[in-house]
Amino acid sequence: MHLTPRRRRRLVTALTAALTAVMLSAVAGCGSTEPRDPLADAKAGHLTIGVKYDQPGLGLREPDKQMTGFDIEVAEYIAQYLGVPADHITWKEAPSPQRETLIKNGEVDFIVATYSISESRLRAVDFAGPYYIAGQSLLVRADETDITGPESLEKGKKLCSVAGSTSAQNVKEMYPGVQLQQFDSYSSCVEALSRGKVDALTTDDIILAGYAAQYPGEFKLAGEPFTTEKYGVGLAKGQDAARDAINDAIEDMIVTGAWRAALEQTMGRSGFPLPDPPQVNRY
């Protein structure tokens, strides 16, 4: 069949459009994600674990890219219990607003990132634990005398917390008169506090103690804790066997004394009073 130049151009255009549609469809299909199966990944010899990168004493990515902190110790113990050595873990940063998304999209097997168990979060993800119980408190500059608790913030003080965190939500519900500023990370709040842009930072006491220890003489905790925060290991809904195995790992870490040793190693020098281990509730 003889094709004129015009018909040849039309055919090429049609074929190109069809090929482009096929390629776009394929890309869209590759973009679909499913939650991970932690036990299957552990059996294959590798885990991807979501952690914080900016919380000294809990989850911190050091300048040499090594991960340190109590959450890291807990995550490594769980991985080892599931048969995965520490050097077969891929660490992924899990900012507070993104944790549920990371789990649902299959970007992590589970998350160990000062992740407070709450009723609203239990509707989105499952939790093992708790592996630690904290309390929300305040961090202020060392020379601050006016701020003695959350009530004193309602006198025109500026408070910083992180968007998507339980801490920010608690302030909105319990102290609506406070001028709350929500940043994308606690390290950004610490910088704002240091520069006098805000008057206080709120999150859990153990996190604040880590920052106070990182910058000795610059900050202090103010007042008493005003909530109870149960840290859990977040994972996808329906992974019941994995959740049970992680609960077993946490209980084993507590019974063997490894929990206490890890907490003393990571937070002992901060001067923060270290609590007893929690009871694993098996949510």
Rank of each mutant, 00 (worst) to 15 (best):
R6F: 13
T13G: 15
L19S: 13
T20Y: 00
A28K: 06
G29E: 13
G31D: 02
P38Q: 11
L39V: 07
L39G: 13
A40I: 12
G45D: 06
G45M: 10
H46P: 04
T48M: 11
V51C: 14
P56D: 15
G57M: 14
P63F: 03
D64Q: 00
M67F: 08
D71Q: 11
A79G: 04
G83S: 12
A86C: 10
T90Q: 14
W91V: 11
Q98L: 14
L102T: 03
I103E: 01
Y115T: 15
Y115W: 08
L122F: 13
R123N: 15
A128P: 03
Y131N: 11
G135F: 14
R141K: 09
A142P: 01
G149E: 01
E151L: 14
E154H: 04
C160I: 04
S165C: 08
V171E: 06
G177V: 09
S185E: 11
E191R: 14
E191L: 08
L201D: 09
L201M: 13
T203Q: 06
D205M: 12
I206T: 07
Y211C: 02
A212P: 08
A213T: 01
Q214M: 09
G217L: 00
G217V: 06
E218D: 10
K220L: 06
V233T: 10
Q239E: 12
A241V: 02
R243V: 02
A261G: 05
A262E: 01
L263S: 00
P273I: 02
